[in-house]
């Protein structure tokens, strides 16, 4: 009996040591997204938040590079967070929202509609950027299942070593620095700051489907239903940009959708002048995305809309928020002037 117990103990110990070693190697091999390709860090950063938010921005790069929660707070006292990711597909946005609603109930959810042009999973790399950082739960499982491209398997999301093991040959200092630590946040409540200027030159043309994919619209329906179920106002926006193009047919389709569901829809491409966006100075990549100067202008403009239309409270003066935003603003200003 004693011998059997010793064997069982030995086997268990061997398994624990082996799994421990594999866990450590798995952490080492997984991309850290801290110094390079920081978009992958955004999803996970949300879980570090200690305060609630009145506004949640959901969508792709046109939210996480176009809206500054720091400006919204400092100008209007609006508390907000951006759950955005690179090429974040509509079903990923849906599940990220579902995940967020487990722990907080914002008053307004703002969804940028550009990603509706994708009706099918697009790229494994972007899936990984957006989903690896999500906490485990039914929302993450749903997001993975909906997002997997050909050749991907669910197991590799559960055990990241199965996906990233080949990185063992190309580890960098970043991998060792953030082996067991997530490091400082790379964003400002989900906002990724760009300070460079690269003026827009010309507007490219492209061929396109006149109608948005049916599957995207179905996911948007689900998102509207989810917000309604939680008593959250859903606002649809199209953030200002020159490219990727947002075609008039798509605009009309979303406007009709918003009308039929009683939602507000703002296509802000047409409001560039009112916002004060100048694509010669407010973009860092020739009109595709806004730099920090453009993002602040847009935040000031849209903050007023949120305050006036949805009656959002001014939280300035509340100790918890002030402390949070003071530290964030200090870091933000350093980043802006670097």
């Amino acid at each position: 009996m004693k011998r059997k117990l010793l064997i069982i103990g030995g086997v268990l110990l061997a398994c624990i040591v082996c799994f421990g070693a594999l866990w450590a190697v798995s952490r080492l091999c997984a991309p850290k997204y801290h110094d390079t390709l920081i978009d992958g860090h955004l999803t996970g950063e949300y879980y570090r938040e200690t305060t609630d938010h009145d506004v949640l921005f959901i969508g792709d790069c046109e939210v996480f590079e176009h809206f500054s929660p720091v400006t919204l707070y400092n100008e209007y006292g609006i508390t907000s967070y951006i759950r955005g990711g690179a090429q974040q597909l509509v079903w990923q946005s849906y599940y990220l929202l579902e995940d967020a609603l487990l722990t907080e109930t914002p008053k307004v959810v703002v969804y940028n509609v550009l990603a509706l042009k994708y009706g099918e999973p697009q790229s494994e790399a972007y899936n990984r950027l957006n989903l690896d950082g999500m906490r485990w739960g039914s929302a993450k499982i749903g997001a993975i299942r909906a997002s997997m491209t050909e050749g991907e398997d669910f197991m590799s999301y559960v055990f990241p070593l199965l996906r990233y093991h080949d990185r063992i040959a190309s580890l960098t200092a970043e991998d060792f620095t953030y082996w067991f630590s997530d490091g400082d946040p790379v964003s400002f409540k989900g906002y990724v700051m760009h300070t460079g200027v690269d003026p827009a030159t010309e507007t490219p043309t492209e061929t396109y489907e006149k109608k948005l994919p049916e599957s995207s619209i179905l996911w948007l329906e689900r998102m509207a239903a989810l917000c309604e179920a939680h008593g959250v106002s859903l606002v649809l926006i199209k953030s200002p940009s020159i490219y990727p193009l947002w075609h008039p047919e798509w605009d009309a389709e979303i406007a009709a959708f918003a009308k039929s569901h009683g939602l507000r829809y703002d296509n802000m491409i047409a409001e560039n002048d009112a916002i004060g966006i100048d694509m010669q100075t407010d973009t860092y990549d020739q009109g595709q995305h806004l730099n920090v100067f453009g993002a602040e202008k847009l935040s000031r403009y849209f903050g007023a809309v949120l305050r006036d239309e949805f009656g959002l409270a001014d939280h300035r003066g509340e100790a918890a928020y002030d402390a949070d935003y003071a530290a964030l603003t200090a870091r933000y200003e350093i980043g802006k002037h670097e």
Binding site: I7, L22, R163, H165
Partner: peptide, 27 residues
């Protein structure tokens, strides 16, 4: 050489496959 030793050998094989094997997305 015993069950524990055999399990250790098995785990080393599995571990090295997981780390150095060519499998998964992209392969």
């Amino acid at each position: 050489r015993g069950t524990v030793f055999s399990v250790c050998v098995l785990l080393v094989l599995i571990g090295t496959i997981l780390i150095f094997g060519r499998y998964g997305f992209g392969f």
